[in-house]
Simulated assay, not measured.
Amino acid sequence: MSRPPTFTPPPCARARTLRTARGDFAVLDAAPGAEARSTALLLPGYTGSKEDFIALLEPLADAGFRVVSVDGRGQYETEGTERQEAYAQVELARDVLAQAEALGAGDQRVHLLGHSLGGQVARAAVLLDASPFRSLTLMSSGPAEVVPGQRDRLKMLGDALRTMTMAEVWEAMRAFDPPEDADTGDGEDMRRRWLRHNPAQLVATAAQLSGEPDRVAELAALPMPFHVVSGERDDVWPVELFDDMARRLGARRTVIEGAEHSPNTARPLETAAALASFWDGH
């Protein structure tokens, strides 16, 4: 679970509703002082939200980019449904296409970035229709299903969500937190975000993470620039898998020193610099 440094957006960003052909989505929309060079759409990971990218917004806006981070369907401040089929990967991918269309002006295309689960949704969107996108960045998002230990954890969580309330599951998860996470000061923000997630979304996307096939060859066939970003270590996918995926895609590869699964929160300035450098080239 990503831990944003704050849930308060910087002055360059505003919380608003993005209205699309597939419904309304809660976003943080950060703009540079002058005309934006291009727009980037950022998709959060499992149990995450648009706030996971807060620390990237100001440095990326300062670099001249408009950056929009989004709560997907059933995540935090975007409404969802109790029907798990509404969260099928293809449906979430169609949401991303609608978001890109709503952000684009005329022929403007957007840079797409997905973190973890968001990367696999972003990949599915690009494979449905690559035309709205300038580039694709996969951040800490592997080529296929998560490692066995994570699959076990996702199954346990899915089982709990079917029989317990969100509040009960939250208290159970906190009992397993490492001591260093006990007094971080963000507990109420994290709890509030968790309670507003739709449990059907969490169950459905957990199954996706546990059963995702390898679609790298399909992606590599597209005439699009790719960027694979990760920390030095990762407990969801081995870093070696990111290296191999980047090679198969012919992608730029960036490893953020001192970061693990969430370089966007652990090393935001270094991560923003790597993203801006990649987007500058496209």
Score class of each variant (00 low, 15 high):
residue 92 L to H: 03
residue 243 D to L: 01
residue 173 M to K: 11
residue 247 R to G: 02
residue 174 R to T: 07
residue 173 M to V: 10
residue 231 G to A: 02
residue 249 L to Y: 06
residue 152 D to G: 06
residue 105 A to E: 08
residue 222 L to T: 02
residue 163 T to D: 05
residue 227 H to I: 08
residue 177 D to N: 12
residue 100 A to F: 10
residue 267 R to W: 09
residue 255 V to S: 15
residue 26 A to M: 05
residue 123 R to N: 12
residue 205 T to C: 04
residue 228 V to L: 03
residue 45 G to P: 14
residue 60 L to H: 11
residue 62 D to M: 14
residue 266 A to I: 03
residue 27 V to S: 11
residue 218 E to R: 07
residue 61 A to D: 11
residue 17 T to R: 08
residue 136 L to C: 13
residue 180 E to Q: 08
residue 137 T to G: 00
residue 98 A to V: 07
residue 235 D to K: 07
residue 275 L to A: 03
residue 152 D to L: 12
residue 20 T to D: 13
residue 237 W to T: 04
residue 274 A to H: 12
residue 115 H to E: 01
residue 168 E to F: 09
residue 156 M to H: 07
residue 129 D to R: 05
residue 254 T to I: 06
residue 52 D to K: 02
residue 54 I to E: 08
residue 169 V to L: 10
residue 271 T to K: 07
residue 183 D to Y: 03
residue 39 T to Q: 10
residue 10 P to G: 02
residue 139 M to K: 13
residue 207 A to Q: 08
residue 148 P to Q: 08
residue 282 H to N: 05
residue 65 F to K: 01
residue 93 A to G: 01
residue 102 A to M: 09
residue 216 V to F: 12
residue 273 A to E: 15
residue 6 T to I: 12
residue 257 E to A: 08
residue 86 A to C: 05
residue 148 P to M: 06
residue 177 D to Y: 15
residue 190 M to W: 03
residue 69 S to W: 02
residue 215 R to G: 04
residue 213 P to K: 15
residue 151 R to L: 09
residue 218 E to F: 04
